[in-house]
Each structure stands twice: as structure tokens, then as C-alpha cells.
């Protein structure tokens, strides 16, 4: 059962769907983080979500929240959240933040799979380990590193687009080839920088531009 849940093929396929959601977010100038909720027994995609903080002016509209809301909106009215999500796995391109990790506990998830880490405020081991806290909903297991490079690449593209004239961005681009060995580390740091900058609703990145 566990093998089916975390089977390599389905895992990568589902993360590709989450990456596709992140691409859609990038296309509308949102932080490119995407998420899908997949039913474990048959692989059915219950819901999709992507960051929506800029459009809503609400810093809490992360991909996980969008997906959970979508799932509940379409759920059988007889089901309650924990019954629904207990049997699902959530795939998200970047480590859930402290808020989202707590939310996933309330929703009743037991399995979460994410791409890159979020060093600034990841709630699944980076800043805090909310997913394993003793109280407040169900604890969940995480699997990380699935298509992490792709997730980081998306965040880098977002960063470059948003700050095309920013001197810092140019400097980073110049330095990138020189430090080929530490590329992934740099990229990860940068990715978390990006999420840190814009998680608050994206207005910050707008103001940085202006």
C-alpha cells in the first residue's frame, strides 16, 4: 500500500501535475508554486491549486489552501475534511510553510510530498517541524526532493522576470556559471529567497519593481 502511494512513477507523474500548476501561476505573475491532491487508492486527482496571493491581496492564499478549498468545494457533502484527506497524498512543488503545514494537519493529511525545501519558513523541517508536532490535528509524513530542481528553476524564472532591472538579479546571473559546483545550493537559497519575498502577497515584489 505504501509502495503504491509513494511509487516512483505515480509520484513523479503527480509532481509533474503540481509543476504544471506552478507554471500557470508563473504565467499570471504569482509565485510559481503548485499543488495537487491525489486519492491514494486510484490515483484520481481530487483537486489542484496554485499560489494566488497577489490577485487576492491575501497572503494566506498559498497553493495548498487553494487546493484544499477546491477539494472541499467538490467533495461529497457527507464527507468531512479529515475523512477525505486521510486517504489522499498532497504533492506541492515547494515545502509547505509553517502556516500550510499546520493547515495540512487540520485537514487531516497523512502523506505529503514536496519538491524543493523552503529555508526561510518551511514548516516541515526547515524553520520548524510543524508536521511532527504533538498537538493540533494529525501528524503527517513527508517525502522531499521530487523534481526539486524543476521547482527551483520556476522560482528562479519568477525572480528574474520580476526583477529584470534589479542590479542584484544581474549580479546573480553573472556569478551563476562561475560557481557551477555550488549551483544547486545557490539555487535553493535563491528559491527560498523568492518565496520569502513574495509569499506575503506579492505586493512586495511589485514595490521592488517600482
Amino acid at each position: 500500500m505504501a509502495a503504491a502511494r509513494f511509487g516512483v512513477e505515480s509520484r513523479e507523474g503527480n509532481m509533474r501535475l503540481a509543476l504544471a500548476e506552478a507554471e500557470k501561476a508563473l504565467a499570471v505573475q504569482e509565485v510559481p508554486i503548485g499543488c495537487v491532491i491525489v486519492r491514494n487508492c486510484d490515483g484520481h486527482v481530487v483537486a489542484r491549486g496554485r499560489n494566488n496571493t497577489v490577485a487576492t491581496g491575501d497572503a494566506t492564499r498559498h497553493a495548498e489552501f487553494e487546493a484544499i478549498d477546491a477539494a472541499l468545494a467538490h467533495a461529497d457533502t457527507g464527507a468531512i475534511a479529515s475523512d477525505l484527506f486521510d486517504a489522499c497524498t498532497l504533492y506541492v512543488t515547494c515545502e509547505p510553510c509553517v502556516m500550510c503545514a499546520a493547515a495540512l494537519r487540520y485537514a487531516g493529511f497523512r502523506h505529503v510530498c514536496f519538491g524543493c525545501r523552503n529555508d526561510k519558513f518551511g514548516g516541515c523541517g526547515s524553520a520548524l517541524s510543524v508536521h511532527q508536532a504533538p498537538t493540533g490535528g494529525t501528524s503527517f509524513q513527508v517525502e522531499e526532493g521530487v523534481f526539486a530542481e524543476e521547482a527551483i528553476a520556476l522560482l528562479r524564472r519568477f525572480y528574474a522576470n520580476e526583477n529584470v532591472n534589479a542590479p542584484q538579479a544581474r549580479k546573480r546571473q553573472r556569478n551563476a556559471p562561475a560557481a557551477a559546483g555550488s549551483e544547486s545550493v545557490d539555487a535553493e537559497v535563491e528559491a527560498s529567497d523568492v518565496r520569502a519575498c513574495v509569499s506575503g502577497g506579492g505586493s512586495e515584489s511589485q514595490s521592488a519593481e517600482g
Partner: peptide, 21 residues
């Protein structure tokens, strides 16, 4: 409007006047 480069090219609004979040 700012060209997204990532394929979108969506428009930005000006900064919210009512404050930032």
C-alpha cells in the same frame, strides 16, 4: 503592463492604496 516572459504577460495593478496586507 509587464511582459511576463514566462508566457503570460499579465498586467500588474498599482500598489494597493489601502496599505500592504
Amino acid at each position: 503592463p509587464v511582459d511576463g516572459g514566462g508566457g503570460g504577460g499579465a498586467e500588474h495593478g498599482p500598489r494597493p492604496i489601502g496599505g500592504y496586507l
